[in-house]
Each structure stands twice: as structure tokens, then as C-alpha cells.
Computed example of a mutant assay.
Amino acid sequence: MEPVDIVAGHHYTSTFPSSHFRSGLMVARYVEDRHVVLRHDAVTVRRAGEPTEHRALAPGELTGWLDRLEVALSADELGRLLLRVRELDPGSR
């Protein structure tokens, strides 16, 4: 794979109208012994040699995961993010 292939892939996934990367929050990070994928409505945790955990977020749980994953947001950015999440998911996490 060449660097241009990666650039083209990123461009496609960030601009194609039905790409899920345009319509939802997604954060992925390795934390200690696990890989965590956080979406606006769910969390997935993968650990080597163990079954994958996937579940819906409970109301109010999103900010705790953002903290655990060390997502650096100002208070204003967090407020705007939470407003956008409420638009995506009226059950608001």
C-alpha cells in the first residue's frame, strides 16, 4: 500500500454522503491491555484472547468514556459535541 492509497481512503470515507464517519461520533484508542471503540451510542472493548464486549451506552456514560480515552476537549467543544450527539441520538448518551 502506498501513502496515496491511504489519503484516497481517508478522503472517500470522510466525504462519501452515506459514510458512517460523516454521521456519527467514533473514537478508537488502545488503553492498557485493550482496544476501545467509542461511538455516540455504543462502546466496544477488545482484549487479546477474550470475547469482544459490545454494548449500548447508558445515558450520561459518553463523557466518562471520553475522559477515560483522554479525548482533549475544551468545555465549549464538549458542549457542542454533546449537542450534536443529542441530534444523532435523541435518547442522548
Rank of each mutant, 00 (worst) to 15 (best):
residue 40 H to I: 14
residue 6 I to E: 12
residue 85 V to E: 07
residue 86 R to Q: 11
residue 4 V to E: 15
residue 19 S to F: 05
residue 42 A to K: 00
residue 29 R to W: 01
residue 40 H to T: 07
residue 53 E to M: 08
residue 48 A to L: 14
residue 9 G to I: 04
residue 76 D to M: 10
residue 17 P to H: 05
residue 40 H to Q: 14
residue 31 V to T: 02
residue 35 H to K: 11
residue 84 R to W: 08
residue 68 R to A: 08
residue 43 V to M: 04
residue 60 G to I: 15
residue 8 A to I: 07
residue 45 V to L: 06
residue 22 R to K: 15
residue 53 E to A: 06
residue 57 L to P: 03
residue 87 E to C: 11
residue 53 E to R: 04
residue 81 L to S: 02
residue 84 R to Q: 15
residue 15 T to E: 12
residue 34 R to N: 02
residue 64 G to L: 03
residue 78 L to V: 03
residue 63 T to Q: 09
residue 31 V to F: 01
residue 6 I to S: 08
residue 84 R to I: 10
residue 27 V to G: 06
residue 80 R to A: 09
residue 12 Y to D: 10
residue 58 A to K: 12
residue 73 L to N: 02
residue 40 H to N: 14
residue 52 T to C: 06
residue 89 D to E: 08
residue 71 V to P: 01
residue 3 P to G: 09
residue 11 H to C: 12
residue 59 P to M: 11
residue 15 T to V: 06
residue 77 E to I: 12
residue 79 G to V: 07
residue 55 R to K: 09
residue 56 A to M: 06
residue 91 G to H: 11
residue 43 V to K: 00
residue 53 E to Y: 04
residue 26 M to K: 10
residue 44 T to N: 04
residue 73 L to Q: 02
residue 68 R to S: 04
residue 57 L to C: 06
residue 29 R to K: 07
residue 44 T to S: 13
residue 80 R to V: 13
residue 64 G to N: 11
residue 3 P to H: 13
residue 30 Y to M: 10
residue 79 G to W: 02
residue 8 A to S: 11
residue 80 R to Y: 03
residue 38 L to P: 00
residue 35 H to E: 14
residue 4 V to C: 15
residue 76 D to P: 00
residue 78 L to W: 00
residue 17 P to N: 06
residue 19 S to H: 11
residue 58 A to H: 10
residue 4 V to F: 09
residue 1 M to H: 11
residue 57 L to Q: 04
residue 20 H to V: 12
residue 33 D to S: 13
residue 10 H to N: 12
residue 67 D to R: 05
residue 90 P to K: 01
residue 46 R to N: 10
residue 58 A to I: 08
residue 23 S to K: 10
residue 22 R to V: 11
residue 42 A to F: 05
residue 82 L to W: 03
residue 67 D to W: 02
residue 54 H to K: 05
residue 1 M to I: 10
residue 46 R to A: 12
residue 71 V to I: 14
residue 63 T to Y: 04
residue 46 R to H: 05
residue 74 S to H: 01
residue 28 A to L: 15
residue 13 T to Y: 09
residue 91 G to T: 07
residue 75 A to R: 09
residue 88 L to E: 12
residue 75 A to W: 04
residue 78 L to F: 00
residue 27 V to S: 06
residue 65 W to E: 06
residue 43 V to Q: 00
residue 15 T to D: 05
residue 28 A to C: 12
residue 6 I to G: 07
residue 84 R to L: 15
residue 5 D to P: 00
residue 41 D to N: 15
residue 53 E to S: 03
residue 76 D to T: 12
residue 86 R to P: 01
residue 8 A to P: 05
residue 30 Y to I: 10
residue 31 V to N: 01
